[in-house]
């Protein structure tokens, strides 16, 4: 299962100052742990909202609003995309994030199975019989 792990912004991350050497090193070690465990798919740190923008939709119009944005705790400062077995495992990883304070949100990513209709027994049987065909012929 894929999870998006979102690190919320704070005054420091919004200030645009680079993180302290210490935090930078700690994050590096944490990232390395994720890579070594084979669970990290992607991850990035985000520049402050002052360097970003929003596009608002409404009344058939699009309005561009430049940053910064005030509601700091609703902003993101970075994310990881990880592939783990369960929400519990995602939580166990997030508990290791080298954060002193603040909040990190974990959200499951939709999987194809979430959209698949329930299969009837008959269809399932038919599919089992088709299995050989899919696995043996990659290009045929």
């Amino acid at each position: 299962m894929r999870f998006m792990i979102m690190v919320k912004a704070n005054a420091e991350s919004e200030s645009g100052e680079p993180p302290s050497q210490e935090l930078f090193a700690a994050m590096g070690r944490f990232n390395e742990e994720l890579v070594n465990a084979g669970v990290l798919l992607a991850g990035e740190g985000l520049k402050p909202s002052s360097q970003g923008a929003r596009v608002r939709f409404g009344g058939g119009r699009r309005t561009v609003v430049d940053g910064p944005f005030a509601e700091t705790e609703e902003l993101l400062a970075g994310f990881w995309l990880i592939d783990v077995k369960s929400l519990d495992e995602a939580i166990a990883w997030v508990e290791r994030v080298p954060c002193e304070e603040g909040e990190v949100e974990i959200r499951p990513v939709f999987e194809p199975a979430d959209f698949e209709p329930h299969l009837s027994e008959e269809l399932h049987e038919a599919e089992l019989r088709l299995r050989e065909r899919v696995t043996t012929q990659q290009h045929l």
Binding site: P112, P117, L119, L130, R131
Partner: peptide
């Protein structure tokens, strides 16, 4: 390709 390998009914789709 795992998302594209079967149709809505679960029937395999060739590459």
């Amino acid at each position: 390709r795992s998302r594209a390998r079967t149709d809505a009914a679960g029937k395999p789709i060739l590459l």
